[in-house]
Structure formats: structure tokens, C-alpha cells
Simulated scan of single mutants.
Amino acid sequence: MLNQKNKTQPREPLQLLSYNKYVTTRVGIISLAGFSMAALSLLLQFLNYGAISV
């Protein structure tokens, strides 16, 4: 009933991380920014622990 044409076509499997595939620059920048913020947060937590444990 609804879009019968799609059921007859073979569907391509989802490929998230495939060999020899590149991510876009925007995705790389976003992931690098997220990793940098996480690392900075971890460093601040260690500094805070060191300050309150003394």
C-alpha cells in the first residue's frame, strides 16, 4: 500500500566504519572538539581533586 516499490529493491547494509572510507571535515572537527573538551574536563577534575585532598 505505502511505497511498494521499495520492498522489491535490495537494501544496502548500513556501513558506519568501512575500510578506505573518509569522514567529512565537519565530522572530524566536531569529534576533535568533543575529545578536547572531554580531556580538558578530565584535567580539571584531577586538579580539583588535588586541591580538595590537601
Rank of each mutant, 00 (worst) to 15 (best):
Asn6Glu: 12
Arg11Gly: 02
Ala39Asn: 01
Asn48Arg: 11
Asn3Gly: 05
Leu40Thr: 05
Ile52Met: 11
Thr24Ser: 15
Ala33Pro: 09
Asn3Pro: 03
Tyr22Leu: 13
Asn3Met: 02
Arg11His: 14
Tyr19Cys: 05
Asn6His: 06
Lys21Trp: 04
Ser36Tyr: 04
Thr24Asn: 12
Ile29Phe: 04
Leu47Ala: 14
Leu40Tyr: 04
Phe46Trp: 09
Phe35Asp: 08
Pro13Trp: 06
Pro13Cys: 09
Gln9Cys: 11
Asn48Thr: 09
Gly28Val: 04
Leu43Thr: 11
Ala39Phe: 02
Val27Ser: 00
Leu42Lys: 11
Pro10Arg: 10
Asn48Gly: 09
Ile30Met: 06
Gln9Ser: 11
Ala51Ile: 13
Val27Asn: 01
Leu42Ala: 08
Ser53Met: 08
Met1Asn: 01
Leu44Gly: 10
Ser53Asp: 08
Leu44Arg: 06
Ala51Met: 07
Gly28Asp: 03
Val54Gly: 09
Gln4Gly: 07
Pro10Ser: 13
Asn6Gly: 00
Gln9Leu: 15
Leu17Gln: 15
Ser41Tyr: 00
Val54Gln: 15
Gln15Asp: 12
Pro13Met: 11
Leu16His: 13
Leu40Ser: 01
Phe46Arg: 01
Met37Glu: 03
Phe46Ser: 02
Ser41His: 00
Ser53Tyr: 09
Arg11Met: 07
Asn3Leu: 13
Phe35Gly: 01
Val27Lys: 03
Leu43Gln: 03
Gln15His: 15
Ser36Val: 04
Arg11Trp: 04
Met37Asp: 00
Ser36Arg: 08
Gln15Tyr: 14
Gly28Phe: 08
Ser18Trp: 04
Ala38Phe: 06
Thr25Glu: 11
Ser31Glu: 03
Phe46Pro: 02
Leu14Pro: 04
Val54His: 15
Ala38Gly: 04
Ile52Asn: 11
Ser36Lys: 01
Ser41Gln: 04
Tyr19Lys: 15
Ser41Trp: 01
Val54Asn: 15
Ser53Ile: 14
Val23Gly: 02
Val54Ser: 14
Asn20Ala: 14
Asn3Glu: 05
Ala38Tyr: 01
Ala38Val: 02
Val23Arg: 15
Ile30Lys: 06
Leu16Gly: 11
Asn20Ser: 10
Val54Cys: 14
Ala51Cys: 10
Glu12Ala: 06
Gly34Met: 07
Leu44Ala: 09
Leu47Gly: 13
Leu14Thr: 15
Asn48Lys: 05
Ser31Arg: 08
Glu12Gln: 06
Leu14Asn: 11
Thr24Leu: 03
Arg26Glu: 09
Arg26Trp: 05
Pro13Phe: 13
Leu42Trp: 03
Lys5His: 09
Ser53Thr: 10
Val27Gln: 05
Leu47Val: 13
Gln15Pro: 11
Arg11Pro: 02
Gly28Ala: 12
